[in-house]
Write a protein that binds this DNA or RNA. Structure first.
Lengths: 330, 330
DNA sequence: GATAAAAATGAATACGTATTCACGGGTTTC
DNA sequence: GAAACCCGTGAATACGTATTCATTTTTATC
């Protein structure tokens, strides 16, 4: 691969002059620019971003540590974040949460010298928070938050959980199950809390199922619920992805949705709108996607001098979208 | 951030020695290793991968240029590729195809000094093929292929199209529509060709709808089909994503699937198995995911000396999965 | 037309690492 | 006991770029 030195030689100038042409420095003669441009084309020259990053001590790249894509929620956020970052001249290194091996992921990211980090996969008491703060790399959390605060954008999960539970209560259900993920995630913790508060005395421990969010684990939970003496007549699944697993499994077993079981999810993933799915769900008011909030603030942090970096703590208001998967108790 | 020089100073050794410890060189005294390790921990040292990449002239990273994730097919392949690469010590820079702006994406990727490229978004006569060959960076295509060959893994699209068409024919349909994407992609081109061959005289131009694969465009196509004097009784959508759009739109209009319209997709995305969806589809025989083929061969290419780099041209055999969305013509 | 100011350029350097080479001290070999 | 060898280490260097500084050339000012 041709280097700027090769270009310089061919154009009959010095390497710094080539560098100036590349970066659009003003103080360079028009004729020289032309010579250099020609040489660059002839050699099919492309600037080496690795070398530039080393010299400038910044990589113009951010890391995204996302939840696994089998949850469509993270599909949309990943797309948004990559595209917004791109539009601002930043590239995105995409990493996926690895069950129980997140430590290695963070370690890897820190070696990459990224200019900032967006993460969706932090636990409420994750020790990585301190490490990240110590590293001085700006970072923004979205969807999930950490107990210590920091920069984050989330939905009001407690309110969301209450919204879902109240919706089902209003439909006449009194036996309402909660199926979610590990409660060391702020999302699941909040959604469960809101559910409990809304149900009050009606909430029973047996109807609360904490899973690892995989389809098989969700199915196991559903089976356990159906085997109860008092099986629930409605399910609040803490994500649409889990709600879809419930829905499919129940339908395969001959249950009708919502006649035999009402289902409410959360996230409003695109699939929930499909005519054959029609999933009742909770999402946030449409300002802009959470991922966009997060990456825009991150880029803002990166561009600000360290001393004046403001913080961002956004908690979006949830709203319920009632569709066909939830109905009156009969 | 602490550098290897800082570590060296603290440990009372030279920088090269630190480097040797990092990379597990054999010829270094045990006591020295210990000193260095301690210094690294005390300084919270992390090797700078940018500098390493510059020195070694390889980045241990690959680029993935993928179709947009709103098509679930690319969700699975992206996950697979990132994970496999990771397991082999390579990180993945994820880029998304940009309608009409792919040139810029390739340009960006080439500046990144990646060790290899996996791409799913090439056109059959894409001029970028030559550029990539000229750049000497190994690259592997999956899903779509280029007319010039190269390394690729694909499904036998022609056979797949025929499989779908024949399935619908066997169900008694004679008016079968094709809805797909631009035929300058080998996938759509092949699927259309197979469809045409299977239908023979029965295939009518009016039933063939080439879209840009977006939901709105697919819906427009469906509307046009329904408005025909002889509307089709079955649709072969060239991807499951498009098939889902058709299905949802038709159901919203009151059509019953498959009684009023049979639908067959292709890709067998996970959602197609949902009990409420039950999409008939075409996929390839289960050896391993296409993305895995691609990335494994790419890593193999990277590790091989340039002179002995073999080629890979895999065309997987398609199979039909009949589900509930296609039924007998009544 | 002399002097100051501005514009254009190159030499030297630094970013953090891995690698090559040289060197000293210890061990083996006959 | 000298030659041959291996082990452990440091000095010097290179990767490709951007930047600082000094220098030369051009333009502006009176």
């Amino acid at each position: 691969m041709a280097s700027s030195k090769d270009v310089a030689k061919r154009a009959g100038v010095s390497q710094p002059t080539v560098s100036r042409v590349i970066n659009g420095s003003t103080n360079v003669n028009k004729a020289t620019i032309e010579k250099v441009r020609r040489a660059m084309e002839e050699l099919n020259y492309r600037p080496n971003l690795i070398a530039r990053s080393l010299k400038q001590q910044k990589t113009k790249s951010i890391a995204l540590i996302s939840g696994a894509l089998h949850n469509p929620f993270f599909v949309d956020s990943t797309t948004t974040i990559v595209n917004v970052a791109n539009a601002h001249g930043y590239r995105t290194l995409v990493y996926f949460e690895e069950q129980g091996n997140n430590e290695a992921v963070y370690e890897e990211v820190l070696k990459q010298q990224v200019d900032g980090i967006v993460l969706s996969s932090i636990f409420i008491d994750d020790p990585v928070f301190k490490e990240l703060e110590h590293s001085k790399i700006p970072f923004v959390m979205f969807n999930r938050r950490h107990q210590a605060g920091g920069n984050f954008v989330e939905i009001d999960n407690e309110q969301a959980g209450a919204l879902a539970a109240n919706h089902l209560l209003e439909l006449g259900h009194s036996k309402i199950a909660w199926i979610g993920g590990p409660t060391n995630c702020s999302t699941f913790d909040g959604r469960l809390l809101g559910y409990k508060k809304a149900l009050g005395e009606l909430g029973k421990a047996a109807w609360i199922k904490e899973t690892d969010t995989t389809e098989s684990d969700v199915i196991t939970a559903v089976d356990q619920l159906l085997a109860l003496e008092e099986p629930p007549t409605a399910i609040f699944a803490a994500t649409d992805a889990m709600a879809l697993s419930c829905q499919s499994y129940l339908m395969n077993k001959g249950y009708r949705i919502p006649e035999d079981m009402s289902i409410c999810g959360m996230d409003d993933i695109p699939m929930s709108r499909h005519a054959a799915i029609q999933l009742t769900t909770v999402t946030h008011e449409e300002l802009k996607p959470m991922g966009q909030f997060a990456v825009e603030h991150l880029l803002h942090l990166i561009d600000s001098p360290k001393e004046v970096r403001g913080s961002m703590q956004v908690t979006l208001k949830p709203k319920l979208i009632a569709r066909h998967s939830s109905g009156m108790k009969n």
